[in-house]
Write a protein that binds this DNA or RNA. Structure first.
Lengths: 347, 347
DNA sequence: ATGAAAGCGCTAACAT
DNA sequence: ATGTTAGCGCTTTCAT
């Protein structure tokens, strides 16, 4: 069996030698930078040589020379949450399309481990950071700031953070609740977030405003804190069922995860959806279509947010942009089987 | 506001200057390589200087010099699948603990885009690859081989692949099915994978063997192909319900995702779990605990597999290992609310 | 239009 | 025990 001719990969030098030109010329041609003045003939010869040697640029050398890694970091608090997996999918696509790669860091629950960012950025591994947090974890944000590379906060805005992309949560919540109201519901429960300054408050505000506009009094007993987990959704749903003697006829869980838990709790208590209770939420995903019943939900362009996140981050890095402040609107209400008229149209 | 003294980060040269020694000495001390002969006094002085300047090594330069990137790549076909998110969590932890970072690539469904590996490896971005595939996608495997860096196949073994970590699927399936049999079930359905040479076949074999051992005849009508998605699970479950006049009393979906779908289909058809039908599956995850009813399932150390995957990959890279062939055993059967005795103990 | 040469920050012989 | 030096592969002035 013939030995592989060389252990090391071909470099610019090899290509240059084969093409009979200087390495700098090869670099000019192969770096993709058009409008470099190189004669068409040499250009051809160089491409030909590169192909022949199966030349692949060494990105490490390039990075060292230009002081950029062409890598971006993203840190997520939980991976088994459709929001984050969709963000990652979009971010990865955006990075790939722009010649960057995506480094992932998992922030262990609870740990003072928000130096995940430090780890990524301090050793010069990444040119920029995509930051996500569940709660408005100021620890995480502080860590991101210390990292000294540009970062974009995803899925929320926060005081003192100049770059962020977030949803118009109030508008999304409003769409969901108005749909329920239009169906005739008047006693509508809400499984809420932590009522912090962004997502939680936003959706809560949308819920409350929609009620207000319809002339429905706000009833505190119809609101329970679920947070953003399946488990929290199930617990909050049970709390609502326990605290309200005549049950509400509809529920608006703050998010897909919470809705999943809520639905399970309803099944458990033998409450039929949508016959006994309607359910509408915000954030669509594959799982919403295969649940029983399939969920009525307001679509949020989460993957798009991940994509736009990287793209704007790259612009930030390359200096073509000074600030990122994008509020994304909910796309549309998808009406599926989880919502219907209330059992009786009477209040 | 005072301007930051320097735009560029401190390098070894800066530290050396401050400590009054040569860069090579600083390198010796800071590269962590103990048993380098450096006097305790200079060692102290160097550490002190580094701290004072907040020195952080430039990993790109280091990479270029030693021809290693200290990055590993992982490519996954779907992110919204508990198996893959758990693998990633484990892999990220393992990488971090060993000074590596984890690059993620998402393999777009269907696309001849399995050059995801090529992208990662050919530009010298990673030192090694973690490979996952849903089906035994030979395209993906071929691409991984072409990448010319060591790779470890996760979650399955395959012909011609020398490094892989996989589960003893047959044993896990057997545990689940034997539990059902012990409860008194005799008509046990199976939602299966694609019946390919690894996962699918393995679990199917475990199912069949467990039946055989109990003297229960195999009934082809009780098996439907679900694959590994929620949707597939729901459809396969419906197929079973349609095809079998006296319904089976138990079902063994091949995996957590399929079980989730199956459970939804059962709810939809008004079949109570576990009163009318028991359900046991393989692969535990947070979602299994919060479903209604919570799922009886065989725990699989998936996160551990991700962790062991990187660790063995790193050993492969560093030459301390020639081959990886680990079969992981299911940990234990977790009995939750989804299984019970059959409606009547009669067959 | 192309070549020559310097240097990004680091490590690892090889000296001393 | 520490210093000197070369060079990883690339880009980019500067010269021709």
């Amino acid at each position: 069996m013939p030995r592989t001719p060389s252990v090391t990969r071909p470099t610019l030098i090899d290509v240059a030698a084969l093409a009979g030109v200087d390495v700098s010329t090869v670099s000019r041609v192969l770096s993709g930078n058009l409008n470099q003045r190189v004669s068409e003939e040499t250009r051809q010869r160089i491409h030909q040589s590169a192909r022949q040697l199966d030349y692949q640029p060494n990105i490490t050398a390039r990075s060292l020379r230009v002081s950029r890694t062409f890598s971006l970091g993203i840190a997520v608090p939980q991976l088994d949450n459709p929001v984050f997996s969709q963000i990652i999918v979009g971010a990865e696509r955006g990075a790939r399309e722009h010649g960057y790669s995506l480094l992932i860091a998992h922030i262990e629950e609870g740990a003072a481990d928000s130096d995940a960012y430090a780890r990524l950025a301090s050793t010069n591994r990444v040119d920029g950071l995509l930051v996500t947090t569940l709660d408005d974890n100021s620890v995480v944000l502080k860590a991101a700031k210390k990292a000294k590379v540009p970062f974009v906060l995803l899925n929320r805005s926060a005081q003192g953070v100049r770059n962020s992309i977030y949803f118009d949560s109030a508008a999304a919540a409003r769409m969901a609740v108005e749909h329920l109201i239009k169906l005739g519901h008047r006693r509508i429960a809400h499984l809420s977030g932590q009522l912090n300054p962004s997502t939680g408050i936003g959706r809560f505000a949308g819920y409350r405003d929609a009620l207000l506009d319809a002339g429905i009094a706000y009833d505190q007993n119809l609101v329970a804190v679920s947070g953003y987990t399946i488990k929290g959704g199930a617990e909050a749903m049970r709390e609502i069922l326990t605290k309200n003697k005549p049950l509400p006829t509809a529920v608006f869980p703050i998010t897909l995860s919470a809705a999943t838990g809520a639905l399970m709790a309803l099944h458990q208590h033998g409450i039929r959806v949508p016959e006994d209770m309607s359910l509408a939420t915000v954030h669509d995903g594959p799982i919403a279509q295969v649940m029983y019943p399939p969920l009525t939900t307001v679509q949020m362009p989460v993957e798009q947010m991940g994509y736009d996140g990287v793209v704007s981050l790259i612009e930030l890095i390359q200096g073509g942009r000074k600030r990122v402040d994008m509020k994304m609107s909910p796309s549309q209400l998808i009406i599926r089987g989880s919502t219907a008229h209330p059992p009786s149209r009477r209040d």
